[in-house]
């Protein structure tokens, strides 16, 4: 009975209180800096699109650890990855990028996010599209798995017809640095108002480079020229 009365009193008090009061508490934490990263809630193996695939078979220990971390956190491995995995060296933002690119006119490069090689956004409208360059070791699951995952991400029905249509629309582009890029344009399937994407895959030197732009279909289409300009400017560093 006391519990009920107390609970009701708490509910009434919380419901009626005006300005909230600050909470004071002592926090005692003994953790390494890495442990302060925020993990996503429970990720069941069944949610993992790579479940069952031996994704880490040909990776370096660092790259394997990175990939496992991202999968455990429920992150999209192709929306960004720590480049230390690619370089096979130590972790940290000081690792130099193995590629160069030119920022398209009207776009800006965002702050170096830990998990991405580079991010870009439209000047004056930073929420219009989100573009990223990501490099993963090996085949990163392969073409088919990635395309199906992308289609799922933007809510395109994963039917065989749609998949074949997308495969058929793939464009091959050679970048200034001599890299062969396959470009997949999902805007035709997603429509102007729905979430959409243009993505390119480049396989080179035992790695896969992903250049991806997401946003509403119309915005993605409007920024397609800048995306291709960025893609074409991509070159390995000497």
């Amino acid at each position: 009975m006391n519990f009920l009365v107390l609970s009701l009193a708490i509910l009434l008090l919380t419901g009626c209180s005006g300005q909230q009061q600050p909470r004071h508490y002592t926090e005692v934490v003994s953790q390494t800096p890495q442990a302060r990263t925020v993990p996503a809630p429970v990720q069941k193996p069944a949610d993992n699109p790579h479940a069952g695939l031996n994704m880490g078979a040909n990776l370096t220990p660092d790259a394997r650890a990175n990939l496992q971390k991202m999968m455990a956190e429920g992150q999209d491995p192709h929306s960004g990855i720590d480049m230390s995995a690619f370089a096979g060296g130590s972790n940290g933002p000081a690792e130099p990028s193995p590629y160069t690119w030119s920022i398209p006119k009207g776009w800006k490069q965002g702050p170096a996010k830990m998990m991405r090689l580079a991010s870009f956004y439209k000047e004056g409208d930073p929420d219009a599209v989100d573009c990223s360059i990501v490099v993963l070791p090996g085949t990163a699951g392969g073409e088919e798995a990635n395309i199906k995952r992308w289609m799922g991400q933007v809510g395109i029905d994963l039917s065989d017809a749609n998949y074949q249509k997308l495969l058929g629309s793939a464009q091959t582009i050679q970048t200034q640095g001599g890299l062969q890029a396959k470009v997949y344009d999902l805007t035709a399937l997603s429509g102007a108002a729905g979430k959409s994407m243009i993505a390119a895959m480049i396989s080179t030197n035992g790695t896969t480079i992903f250049v991806k732009m997401t946003g509403v279909g119309q915005a993605v289409k409007q920024n397609q020229a800048q995306f291709l300009e960025l893609l074409k400017s991509l070159a390995p560093k000497n």
Binding site: A35, P61, A65, A72, S84, N91
Partner: peptide, 12 residues
Amino acid sequence: ASYDTDPQGRQY
């Protein structure tokens, strides 16, 4: 609930 591994291979 879950676990993860950092780039140095340390498990959490």
